[in-house]
Design a protein around this nucleic acid. Sequence first.
DNA 1: AATGTCATGTAACTAGTTACATGATTTA
DNA 2: TAAATCATGTAACTAGTTACATGACATT
Lengths: 184, 184
Amino acid sequence: MNETSQLGFALLGLLHQQPMSGYDLRKVFTTTAMAGFSDSPGAIYPALNRLAKGGLVRGAVEKTGSLRTRRVFANTPAGTAALKAWLELPVTRQDVVRGVDLLLLRFAFMDQTLGPVQSTRFLKEFVAAIESYIAELRQFHNLYGNSMPTSGRLAFECGLQQNASYLKWAQSSIAVYQKRKGTK
Amino acid sequence: MNETSQLGFALLGLLHQQPMSGYDLRKVFTTTAMAGFSDSPGAIYPALNRLAKGGLVRGAVEKTGSLRTRRVFANTPAGTAALKAWLELPVTRQDVVRGVDLLLLRFAFMDQTLGPVQSTRFLKEFVAAIESYIAELRQFHNLYGNSMPTSGRLAFECGLQQNASYLKWAQSSIAVYQKRKGTK
DNA sequence: AATGTCATGTAACTAGTTACATGATTTA
DNA sequence: TAAATCATGTAACTAGTTACATGACATT
């Protein structure tokens, strides 16, 4: 019934790292350009209020002698649970087709929330999904590549190359976790 | 006053290649997953109507003896002009930060609409934007890389690698146009 | 006759964008 | 004291999502 938006999950993920105000969250979006989220107050404050209404975050007015209001938000246990559930979702083909950015965002939060074992599982699912997608793209390219206009074909090949790059990254990231496991 | 949405430009680009019905356009989105656009009729038909109202496309009911209605849309001169204006926009830093997908979409339409000279210009602008963005990302990585959680750092490095891949692609694409120019 | 695909559309809802508004505090 | 930044918010608009609705035509 109470669906949380992509932005909502991004906020939950950031608040899991440390409690922050809406303004702080905005700054994160302006400075780091996370997954292309907007830093507009018209997006963030309503999103925070929705989360608060759904009981996923709790905002406390900070009182440091200053009159200036500043609401610091933190995840509630329900919020943390919602975040975890989101992070634990399997990697679907749709996720890969419609924007890897969101998957990367999930992965970025994963280590601190679910730990290295789950992060590795995620990467392996990601590898499988990307591999099958690449195969599909290659097939399409073989069939229609010649009939495409030059820039169209090049743009398509860019997509292919990007996915190959994702694959390489995921594989080397799995290796990072493997090595870390060994040294611990 | 009459802003055209991203989806609107995607439709103009497709219709520039050949006139199509809304259903045909939907199929393009389902089968080729262009830039993550939705194939829902609730998005495409209203978008087409908006374009028609703005005088950018014209829909003609096809009469092939069949009773089944089928409106085939084609760009008007104004529509083609709007498409060209969109394709001719300079490549900004914002374009690179918030989703290269849209730039790639523009590039995909470019050859047939503006020709190879403009396509090359676009690629060079793209290279410049990406290079400066990569430099910024590297700097950020040097400063904060060590303080990031493992998966967060890896996700960031994925972004870096992706941009490096874009850069490589753009440079080799410029070479494709250069070579083509030579042989013609 | 039933199912599937072609083909178009609408209604209710959701959420994001732009722009505005307000006021406290800090810095030049 | 003027300007910048901290900090929060709202209002109007836009457009996309989901789900529903309709009906013609083709295939089995």
